[in-house]
Design a protein around this nucleic acid. Structure first.
Lengths: 208, 208
DNA sequence: AATTGTGAACCTCTTCACAGCT
DNA sequence: AGCTGTGAAGAGGTTCACAATT
């Protein structure tokens, strides 16, 4: 299969969410132009993104919202439930465990870890905090697909290394550091400080 | 000034953080190649990014870590403290108020808002939760530069509209929806579901 | 008549490669 | 000799524009 860009994948996620909203409003059909307006992009972009995966529309009519949502759901692999673990039960980690959006989309956090003895064994939302030394055993036993990293920057690489060794191939990293892994592993970064610094740049240079 | 790409700005943030770590380790000089290795990019990319803003290195030697950190700090506008407000004191909002990294980098959350009467008036980390109806008055009075949006998706656009009307030009949005504003406003998105869905795509299609 | 699907044109970002300093 | 700074080449992503289809 042709290499699909990360931008295309991210836009598919957005279309997916938009379609969900449209279906709730009982809209049955939508054109690429209308989707484009909602996302503030061009209609050609929407059609091109979809064209990498097949032909989903009807010329002259547009796209059926339910069919297209189903198609994107299949492309993104959202038909299945994913087992997620979270390492680092601090402020951010705790908030993510409680964040409902993930579960709704099929990402179930089913194991959580920390290295602080004073919170190990306590519970957050029905989940017991495991010690990090049991990481590998539990990742394998629970068949974890994705690990969310919410530990401090200096501990993040070590968690990735351990988890990769135990077979995990996908990570969502909140630590403000560039993590390394082999080709066969994906790491997505959620770096909030970078986004704030970007705002700072624009306020300083462009928006005076 | 030439238009600088968002990727360049984001990489500058990363270099900045890397330089900070190097300075703590008492490294005084670094080459573009070494920075590139840390960030898993090419040396030419590092040099090109910096070249948009001036010449900071010494041929044959590399870059002085402290000087370069200072230069990037100035480019990104991090010399000054920014006044930040947060709207939506749910799980994520609460975690961000407590998140220390922001304050360390000069982003001070000094006002927080919610519309739930049962929590208005209560405190989170020394800050009293204000009712959303006072948004405009307080944004102006406290001279807020940046608004962090942690309300549900269907309320996010209305918060942006109000805040833009009251003079705010920069937003960090955690709601999973595409927000609209004029040219003179920047909105950065922190969409955690999109990143998870991207992982789902890669696990489904590439990493079997 | 309306709207998709797509090759070609265009534009932007990244990498190469080397002249120019230290 | 070593490493930066940068014009030119290359790669990749976006938009145009139109034939094809309903």
């Amino acid at each position: 299969m042709k290499k699909i860009s990360e931008s295309t994948i991210n836009r598919l996620s957005k279309y997916y969410r938009t379609l969900q909203t449209l279906i709730e409003k009982e809209v049955e059909t939508i054109s690429s132009e209308d989707i484009a307006d909602i996302e503030s992009i061009t209609a050609a972009q929407v059609r091109k993104d979809l064209s990498f995966f097949g032909t989903f529309g009807k010329r002259g009519l547009g796209y059926n919202t339910k069919d297209l949502k189903g198609a994107i759901s299949k492309i993104l692999g959202l038909k299945k439930k994913w087992n997620v673990a979270l390492v680092g039960v601090g402020n951010i980690g705790r908030a993510l465990v409680k964040y409902n959006e993930f579960k709704v989309q099929g990402f179930n956090i089913i194991a959580i870890f920390d290295k602080d003895p004073s919170i190990i064994g306590t519970r957050v939302e029905n989940l017991t905090i495991h010690p990090e030394k049991n990481l590998c055993k539990i990742l394998k036993g629970e068949r974890i697909d994705i690990v969310i990293i919410t530990v401090p920057a200096d501990q993040a690489q070590s968690i990735v290394d351990q988890a990769v060794y135990c077979g995990v191939k996908a990570f969502l990293n909140f630590a403000p550091i560039s993590l390394k892994a082999t080709e066969k592993v994906v790491i997505k970064n959620e770096n909030m400080s970078i986004e704030l610094e970007s705002l700072s740049y624009h306020l300083t240079n462009r928006l005076k």
